[in-house]
Amino acid sequence: MTDAVEAVGLGRRYGRKWALQDCTLSLPSERVIGLVGPNGAGKSTLLHLAVGLLQPSAGEVRVLGRDPRDPGTLARVGFVAQDKPLYGHFTVAETLRMGGWLNPAWEYKLAEKRVARLDVPLTQKVGKLSGGQRSQLALALALGKRPELLLVDEPVSDLDPLARRDFFRVLMEEVAESGMTVVLSSHLLADLERTCEHLVLLSRSRVQFAGDTDDLLARHRMLTGPRDAAAAIEATHTVVQADYTERQASVMIRVNGPLDATGWQVRNVSLEDLVLAYMAAPHLTDDTIETAKKEQVPS
C-alpha cells in the first residue's frame, strides 16, 4: 500500500534559515499519526509542504503517492491549519455550503449533522463562534470532503480541556467509521498520547525518531540500580537519559539486543517520558543510533 505521506531529503528554507531540513520519513496509511516536537521544530512546515501550501527548497514530498500541489490530490486530502482559518463574515451554513462550492464530493447533510452538535444556529456568523466551536466547524469542513488523509496542525493548542476532549471524540468517531489516515501535530505529547498509533518526533528541523507507539514503548526501558553496574548496561544499549546519584543510577535505554538486567529494577516507559527524554537529547536520532551500533560491532 502507498504511504500516506512520503518525504525524501525534504527541506524548506526561509532566507538562510532552514525551517525543515533533510527530512526523510514515510507515514503509513490508515493510522492515526502524531507529529510531535518543540515549537519551531518544523511541524507546521512539514504539513504545509504536504498540502502544497509551500514548495520544497530541497528534496521531495509525495502525498498518497502523488504531487501534493495537484488539485486532484487536494481533493483527497483534508487540512485544518493551526489558526483554523474561516471567513468570519460568513454564517455557519454558508461556510458549510462553501465546502460544496469548492469540492466535488461534498456531503452537506453529513457536515450539517456534525455541526449540529455545536449547539449554534446555522445562521450564526463564524466570527462570533467560540474557539471550540470554530475548531469543530473547521474540522467539519475538512471532513466533509471525505478525505483519505486528514492533516491537522496543532488542533487543540488553543482550546480548553473540555473542548479538547470534544474535538478528539469527534475526530476519533470519524476515524473509526472511515478508516482514513490522520496526522496530528502538537508540541504537547499529552494531547496525542491517547489517540496516536504512530509517532514522529521532529526536533531542530529534523526527524529524531519515527515508529509505531507500541514498538517504541517495547524498545525502551527505564532501569534503576547500583551506579557501578551502569557502565555494563551503557556499553551494549543506547542511553537516552541518565540520572546519577552517588550510589544509584536511573537510566532510560533503547534496547539493542538481549537485556541482562540482573540487579536492576526494570520499568516500562510512558510515551511522555520517552518523548521528553529524546527532546532533551537532540543528538540522538534513529540515524546516529544506527551508526553508533554498527561502529560498536567490529570492536
Binding site: V51, G52, R69, G78, F79, A81, D83, P85, L102
Partner: peptide, 17 residues
C-alpha cells in the same frame, strides 16, 4: 493576512482556478 488562503488553497479547486 487573515490566513484564509490556507483554507481555500487546500480545497479541491487549484490555486490557478
Amino acid at each position: 493576512e487573515s490566513g484564509t488562503h490556507r483554507l481555500v488553497w487546500t480545497q479541491s479547486v487549484g490555486r490557478v482556478r
